[in-house]
Design a binder for these strands. Structure first.
Lengths: 353, 353
DNA sequence: GGGGTTGCCGAAACCGGTTTCGGAACGCAG
DNA sequence: CTGCGTTCCGAAACCGGTTTCGGCAACCCC
């Protein structure tokens, strides 16, 4: 009897006592059975599990939280203000986090805060036990959140890297390797004058991407001179300015690699204004896989990051961290995928140098 | 003594018993004092409130939830798959929801689900009491979520309108009024041949925008013939196709109004391919205020929606709904703001007709 | 056959709050 | 002084789980 599942919202839920009564056991025993305690007979465990399933029993998160101290929720605090940020991928990222969380019976608590005042938001979430740990998106090299959470003993996982990663679990996309490949690819297509336009140097990715490009060029015997490096271009307007300065050099580059698609999309206008054509006599490679790049003419070559998978991994790592795994075992890199589109298909013959 | 605030995560939290001990009262009394029960002396109430504040007491959400049945969290289930959707504005929307929630001591629980299988996700969130109610983003005219939650007696607020709004609280942007204004504006600039490219007719906005445009034109004595109406253009590629068909008509329009910026951005290519120039001899107006529109050449005129404010309002309405206010009092419209940019500044002289 | 394990479960405390109930202290009219 | 109604707080139950502790029964070994 009472075998029906609950009709979504309706009155009385199925509690653990109901299950216990149905089984003729006490709720303590049922609890231990469902939580795989070793002092429960295998037969009883199975019987309890099946009956709970049949009755549609779902433990009340808040009730277990009060005793266990865990609410089985991961926290994500998004910093506002930086309206240049993760916007186009946020939904994928959230899906990745949420799906992996759901698969393990966890949920996702999201909050937002102005860039400076994130501390109070974390504090509140922790005090009220709305989250057992946090994913820190867009970690900066010098990020106050890290010290804050580290000293508080709250579990967290970084997305991106920090200047002092001791005691931190982190996940990152290997953009250095991506840039290294980009360098090889351009050189193999005949380029020798290759420039780099960086993004915000508060973030580790900036140095990684420049370093990766430089390393890849060096492996092919090509130098990256200082005048070929522009920095701080983290939106289209700044990308246009940086591109203009590069193209106005006495010996302008034949290829430009950008740390960000948003900046790379700023290549078209200054190029056209100077009689250069992207994809014909100016190679452009971006990074991020921004969907907008597909609509450029020619389409923007870029490195696409699987934000959903990143969310999956980060969530998984965070839950493992919360369960006590050592941070040293919780560090991983994910490769980016090259989108070899028109803007990069400029092949120079050896004599054009 | 013990006047220090808790250092974020550290060991023992301040519980209500601690506060009670400090005051020489019982925890029941303190609880009633903090929750404004009428049988507590005003002096006691104040004393309790101040001591709690001083000691940094923050009630444990899970603990109150178990007795009150409220976890003070609003739920948001994002449907994946529809990758054409709210992407660029999601962060603003989340900020709006989260900020208003936080201001009232609530939090935001986010989950994702494939379009069809949202039911289980809602079910789980309700069963585990991870949310007291839901904001339904992107409500479709015939939306199974509505019937599901309505029959289950779970509080919710629609963003967008539903075919049968009885018993629903809803919030919407007045896009009909926006389109009406767009019609007036175009007619006042000399246009008489004005076309409309709609989006996904599963949503109420589609009919509202077409209806608004039609009404605005009618008020100026202008008809919207059937061949000037294309539908189902909810991304750039589809926008390009619809534009091409309109421009290939024997008597092509001089202005096109799009239900969505994403489609409107598809006007440029087919126009240029036919010797027409947006902003010169073809007026284009979109809707959404997509940031990408600012980078078009000329920039795309559009209607911008304040997603942050929408989030604020929706959260506020939902909390009031959860607290028991009648749905009839929880319905509101918000105007959109016109971004009068280059693509709409086509002024025709009367003789050109 | 007695004593010590071992396996398995019941009983009850506990977590941190909320809510009900009852009664002490006080004021006031008769 | 008595009787009655308020005001205000203490005591304890309660919410739905988890966890500790103790004990009964069966088994094992000598």
């Amino acid at each position: 009897m009472s075998g029906m599942k609950q009709p979504l919202g309706g009155g009385s839920r199925v509690t653990i006592s109901d299950v216990a009564a149905e089984l003729g056991l006490t709720k303590g025993t049922v609890s231990r059975a469902l939580n795989d305690y070793p002092d429960i007979a295998e037969a009883t465990r199975l019987r309890a599990r099946r009956t709970a399933e049949r009755m549609g029993y779902r433990p009340l998160g808040s009730a277990q939280a009060i005793r266990t101290g865990r609410c089985r929720a991961i926290g994500l605090v998004l910093e506002t203000d930086e309206h240049d940020a993760h916007r186009p991928f946020l939904d994928r990222f959230l899906s990745g986090l949420s799906d992996t969380a759901a698969a393990q019976g966890w949920t996702l608590t999201v909050a937002t805060a102005p860039v400076g005042a994130a501390r109070e938001t974390y504090q509140r979430l922790i005090d009220e036990r709305k989250a057992d740990g946090f994913v820190l998106p867009r970690t900066r090299l010098d990020d106050p959140r890290v010290e804050m959470l580290r000293s508080a003993g709250v579990p967290f996982v970084l997305f991106g890297q920090h200047s002092t990663p001791e005691g931190c679990a982190w996940f990152d996309v290997d953009s250095a390797e991506a840039m290294r490949s980009a360098a090889h690819l351009l050189v193999d297509r005949g380029h020798e004058r290759i420039a780099y336009v960086g993004g915000n140097s508060d973030y580790a990715y900036n140095g990684q991407r420049e370093g990766g490009l430089r390393a890849g060029l060096a492996e092919r015997g090509i130098d990256l001179p200082a005048e070929y490096v522009k920095d701080g271009a983290w939106n289209r307007a700044l990308g246009e300015a940086a591109t203009a300065r590069l193209l106005d050099l006495p010996t302008p580059p034949t290829a430009i690699v950008y740390a960000l698609d948003r900046a790379a999309l700023g290549a078209w206008r200054p190029a056209e204004a100077r009689g250069r054509r992207v994809g014909i006599d100016l190679a452009v490679i971006g990074y991020d896989g921004d969907p907008e790049g597909a609509f450029a003419e020619p389409p923007l070559a870029s490195w696409s990051v699987d934000w959903g998978k990143a969310g999956n991994e980060l969530c998984d790592m965070l839950i493992r961290r919360i369960r006590g795994e050592a941070v040293e075992d919780l560090r991983a890199m994910m490769p980016a995928t090259f989108l070899d589109r028109g803007s990069a298909s400029v092949v120079l013959n050896p004599t054009s140098a």
